[in-house]
C-alpha cells in the first residue's frame, strides 16, 4: 500500500491550486492516508480483465448544426466578474 507523505500532499495541493496552512497539510496527510488505506480494499478483487466504465450508459458526442445563434452580451458575461477593464476580465500580471 502506498503511503502519502506530507511533501506529496503539498505537491498535490499545488497541482490542485490550493495553498495549505501547516495545520491543513498535516490534517490532509492524515486524512488522505486513511482514505487511501480504505480504498486499498479494492485490491482484494482481481480486475485485470475488466473493462473500465466511465459512464453507466453509452455516451456519444452530440453535435449541433454549425450555425450562428444569439449569445450572451458582453455586459452579461462580465456581470459576475470580480474585476474588469474595457469589456474584459481583469487579472493581476501573469509574469513578474
Amino acid at each position: 500500500m502506498n503511503k502519502i507523505s506530507k511533501q506529496e500532499v503539498e505537491h498535490v495541493a499545488k497541482l490542485a491550486r490550493l495553498h495549505l496552512t501547516e495545520e491543513e497539510a498535516e490534517r490532509y496527510t492524515r486524512d488522505l492516508n486513511d482514505i487511501l488505506k480504505f480504498a486499498a480494499q479494492l485490491d482484494e478483487v482481481d480486475t485485470s480483465n475488466v473493462k473500465p466504465t466511465s459512464h453507466a450508459f453509452d455516451v456519444r458526442n452530440v453535435m449541433r448544426e454549425d450555425v450562428n445563434r444569439p449569445s450572451v452580451s458582453n455586459e452579461e458575461a462580465l456581470k459576475n466578474a470580480p474585476d474588469q477593464e474595457e469589456g474584459q476580465f481583469k487579472v493581476p500580471a501573469v509574469f513578474e
Partner: peptide, 17 residues
C-alpha cells in the same frame, strides 16, 4: 497513481453494474 486508483475504481464500477 491513475491505474492504481482511478482506473481500478472504474473497473470496480463495471463489476457493480
Amino acid at each position: 497513481y491513475y491505474d492504481a486508483f482511478y482506473k481500478k475504481a472504474q473497473q470496480m464500477r463495471t463489476l457493480i453494474i
